[in-house]
Design a protein around this nucleic acid. Structure first.
Length: 137
DNA sequence: GCCAACGTTGGC
DNA sequence: GCCAACGTTGGC
């Protein structure tokens, strides 16, 4: 079991939209970065991920589950990039802000802090547990 | 709205 | 295959 973090602008694709997709989930299309694609390739069905709103909010608002493993992204004309399918699992009752994460030394090495621009990131077991706790889960 | 960081592209 | 130029991202 591995953990991940999916970043999105609330304007482009929000947590509310993800929840509306229900059990069918949503293809995480549009990633055009090799490192992010590599992370998606490593995902297995049943892995969980944080759903992070960037932009004005900058906080983790939900939990998603990987329901479809890496496949070609039909929106990529070059055919180089792929996507996974994710479905909403639950809300994070108390959204965990970037500020709160940065303020905690336990997250000093977290990808979200060190390489903030990466859109699909790995999350360690320890980070996952700690953030769930902070989020009231 | 600015700027730093960094990934990608294209010329050589 | 290197590297400069450029574009984009995202935090502040």
């Amino acid at each position: 079991m591995a953990y991940w973090l999916f970043k999105t602008e609330a304007d482009a694709f929000s947590w509310d939209q993800q929840k509306q997709r229900g059990a069918k989930g949503e293809p995480w299309s549009g990633v055009r970065n090799f490192q992010a694609a590599k992370n998606m390739k490593a995902m297995k069905k049943g892995d969980f991920g944080f759903f992070y709103h960037t932009g004005d909010e900058r906080q983790i608002v939900g939990i998603v589950e990987v329901i479809g493993e890496y496949r070609k992204d039909p929106t990529d004309e070059t055919g180089r990039f792929g996507l996974v399918d994710v479905k909403a699992v639950k809300d994070v009752p108390k959204p965990v802000t970037l500020a709160a994460i940065k303020a905690d030394p336990a997250f000093a090495d977290m990808v979200l802090v060190k390489y903030s621009r990466l859109s699909v990131q790995p999350v360690t077991d320890a980070e996952w547990k700690r953030i769930c706790k902070m989020g009231g889960l």
